[in-house]
Design a protein around this nucleic acid. Structure first.
Length: 424
RNA sequence: GGACAGGUGGCUGAGUGGUUGAAGGCACCGGUCUCGAAAACCGGCGUACCCGUAAGGGUAUCGUGAGUUCGAAUCUCACCCUGUCCGCCA
């Protein structure tokens, strides 16, 4: 959500932001409408408050007269008339306000200056770590999984439907090992506090982090309760501090959580859906930081580094992609995708999306801080990223660490958690 | 799910329908005192919005939303949340 003052005083940068996302056609008119509504809202407020001030003065005078034992019938009549005018003006104000709110809650964040313009084709590969393995002689993970009995997608489809996973045996253990490894890394080396959070959250939480109102069809909703299954632990973690004023808080605050994530993937049918690549339920370790505005760019780099460390310790080649404005998520001002190379699939797989949301989520969620006593509260900046999403990491391990004899080498850092050096 | 009790500022805790933005306490900030600190004492101290270059003025805000009233933290209704007890389940 944008500062209402932006609509008034910096409308051009708002227009430019929508343009850079390639949404000038659809969102441009909304911006113009918002500007008109804001001026309407303000004139209504002015008129309303003037009348209210008059009514308050009259009321005080009534009190005074009653105390003195005098009659106040004339005042009562005029105050009653004022009340009617106020009601009408308030209706005008509320109408403008609610239409304005609806527009503002639906406008995406403004990309930072160093984000390239354009759509997905303008994404920039910033760096690559490790050496992608040649695709020949590497079996895709779905074949490996079947041969080594690591997961059972057919039975998962039977009990739930396509797009669900059943891990078993070493496959189940591998995922559990990865979760423990990642959580330990982030809590012990990177300074995150571990959390365990609800998998179902209310509408307010989804609005605060930006999943709603635009992406309702992407989420699972419960039938009998007004709750949504979380698409990422970002939602419950960020909302931990919703409507809070962090007084004397020493920022940054950093939290990590492992959770299941649920995505309907509506409209994604048929696209990279084989094996573990795109599923309705998956596990993920999430990283969230609440930071001071002036630090958010540096903190974004820091968090991205924390996610990269996971891939480095798992000895998996990856690249860091800076997303172009048109490919950057609704709430994000700048996003780095981490893509691991899976030689069996022959593709770079997104395993983490590290975003700087600036004050966009904080304003929606009303998360403020006071840097020092006596200072005005300000909105924090929020930053988050996966560290990492599990199924694609599993896929990459099964492919990149595949030996000629068909067994899988378990990365050294993972061996204490997995309990063996090899699968198969 | 049922019955009670309760939701007031960063925290705690008073509050009779009429200078209550809201006593007191804690925390915090400034000052006096001190070599320095602590203690004590004095003063200050919510948030958001509107008008204004500013000084300043105004409006709203006591869980949320409606209502009664000239006027609501205070009265009415609905909803949400918390606590306790009962029931149910693990």
């Amino acid at each position: 959500m944008h500062d209402i003052r932006m609509v008034r005083d910096a409308a051009e940068s708002l227009r430019a932001g929508m343009r850079r996302r390639g949404k000038a056609d659809t969102l441009g008119p909304l911006v113009e409408r918002a500007i008109a509504l804001e001026s309407e809202r303000r004139s209504a407020i002015q008129a309303t408050e003037e009348k209210k001030a008059a009514r308050n003065a009259a009321s005080q005078e009534v009190a005074k007269r009653k105390k003195a034992g005098q009659a106040a019938d004339d005042l009562l009549a005029s105050a009653r008339a004022l009340g009617d005018e106020i009601t009408a003006l308030e209706q005008r104000q509320h109408a403008a306000q609610s239409e304005l709110d609806e527009i503002l809650i639906g406008l995406p964040n403004i990309p930072l200056d160093d984000v390239p313009d354009g759509d997905e084709s303008a994404n920039v590969v910033l760096r690559t770590w490790g050496t992608p393995r040649a695709a020949e002689s590497v079996t895709p993970h779905w074949d490996v999984g079947e041969r080594l009995n690591l997961f059972d997608l057919a039975r998962a489809a039977k009990i739930s439907g396509s797009g669900f996973i059943v891990y078993r045996g070493a496959g189940a253990r591998l995922q559990r090992a990865l979760i423990s490894f990642m959580l330990d890394l982030h809590t012990q080396q990177h300074g995150y506090e571990e959390a365990w959070v609800p998998l179902f959250v209310n509408r307010e939480s989804m609005l605060a982090t930006g999943q709603l109102p635009k992406f309702e069809e992407d989420m699972y909703a419960l039938r009998d309760d007004p709750l949504f299954a979380i698409p990422t632990a970002e939602v419950p973690i960020t909302n931990l501090l919703r409507d809070e004023l962090l007084d004397n808080a020493r920022l940054p605050l950093a939290m990590t959580a492992h959770s299941a994530c649920f995505r309907r993937e509506a409209g994604a049918a048929g696209k990279d859906t084989r094996g573990l690549l795109r599923v309705h339920q998956f596990d993920k370790v999430e990283l969230v930081r609440w930071v001071a505005p002036e630090e958010s760019a540096a903190q974004h780099e820091l968090l991205t580094g924390h996610a990269e460390t996971v891939l480095q310790q798992l000895d998996l080649p990856y690249r860091v992609v800076l997303l172009a404005a048109g490919d950057t998520g609704f709430a994000s001002a700048k996003t780095y995708d981490l893509e691991v190379f899976a030689p069996g699939v022959g593709k770079w797989l997104e395993v983490s999306s590290c975003s700087n949301f600036t004050d966009f989520q904080a304003r929606r969620a009303n998360i403020r801080f006071r840097a020092a006593a006596g200072e005005k509260p300000r909105f924090v900046h929020t930053i988050n990223g996966s560290g990492l999403a599990l199924p694609r990491v599993v896929a990459a391990i099964l492919e990149h660490h595949q030996r000629p004899d068909g067994t899988i080498a378990v990365p050294t850092a993972l061996q204490p958690y997995f309990g063996a050096a090899s699968i198969g």
